[in-house]
Computed example of a mutant assay.
Amino acid sequence: MRKAFFLGCVVASAALVGCGDESNGQPAPDYVTRTIELVEHADNETVTHTDAAMMDSVGDILTFANPVFDKANANQVGTDQGYCLRTEVGKSWECEWTVFLADGQISVAGPFFDTEESELAITGGTGAYEQASGEMHLGFRDVPAPKVEYDFVYHVIVPY
């Protein structure tokens, strides 16, 4: 009941919401949902192969530290860093990373699929994103090889 009530309090991006907590009669905190759209340039990535005989095997480790740009892909607004573990050859990784922006950090965890878009959980943040939750959509960008870029769309829920 409490979870369903809380989810009913969250609304569209950038809308302010005030909800009471029906279970104890006390007002619940107000929340804001903010959408942040970024473009990651995958310039600095390394895969460490755990099985020297195979180029892609379960347990391989991908580490990265990359620049992130605004939605227009014109100005660098921060960086990210993190790692992924290969969980299914040719199909998926399980990842954790943090994006560093001028007003704070946002951390995420979840799957990265080789050939389809992904949804990751926002696990926390600092600064303007303290007590953050929500989700991040990871999308592929159509850019000429050898460039690799990803759309990162954060739907961040933070106390108002």
Score class of each variant (00 low, 15 high):
67 P>K: 13
155 H>V: 10
39 V>Y: 00
139 G>V: 07
56 D>Q: 13
48 T>I: 12
31 Y>T: 06
95 C>V: 10
152 F>Q: 02
87 T>Q: 12
119 E>R: 14
98 T>P: 07
66 N>L: 04
73 N>A: 14
10 V>A: 10
146 P>A: 09
7 L>H: 11
95 C>W: 07
92 S>Q: 12
45 E>M: 06
49 H>G: 06
61 I>H: 02
30 D>L: 11
158 V>W: 05
36 I>F: 04
7 L>P: 00
34 R>E: 06
4 A>Y: 10
36 I>K: 05
71 K>E: 12
18 G>P: 06
117 E>I: 00
90 G>C: 01
12 A>F: 10
104 G>E: 04
81 Q>D: 11
84 C>A: 15
82 G>S: 01
142 D>T: 12
45 E>W: 01
14 A>M: 11
86 R>I: 01
92 S>K: 14
68 V>C: 06
144 P>E: 10
103 D>P: 00
13 S>F: 09
47 V>F: 06
153 V>T: 15
22 E>Y: 14
57 S>Q: 10
63 T>C: 03
69 F>R: 11
158 V>N: 06
21 D>W: 04
159 P>A: 05
7 L>M: 14
84 C>E: 08
124 G>Q: 03
89 V>K: 11
95 C>S: 08
67 P>H: 06
61 I>Y: 02
123 T>R: 01
132 A>G: 08
124 G>W: 05
18 G>F: 13
151 D>L: 11
139 G>M: 07
66 N>S: 08
91 K>G: 02
44 N>G: 09
61 I>M: 13
48 T>P: 00
31 Y>M: 12
158 V>F: 01
111 P>S: 05
75 N>H: 08
101 L>V: 08
82 G>A: 00
27 P>F: 09
142 D>E: 15
49 H>P: 00
124 G>Y: 00
144 P>L: 15
142 D>I: 09
159 P>T: 02
49 H>S: 03
55 M>V: 07
134 G>D: 07
23 S>D: 12
70 D>L: 04
96 E>Q: 14
112 F>M: 11
61 I>W: 02
120 L>A: 07
65 A>Y: 04
50 T>Y: 10
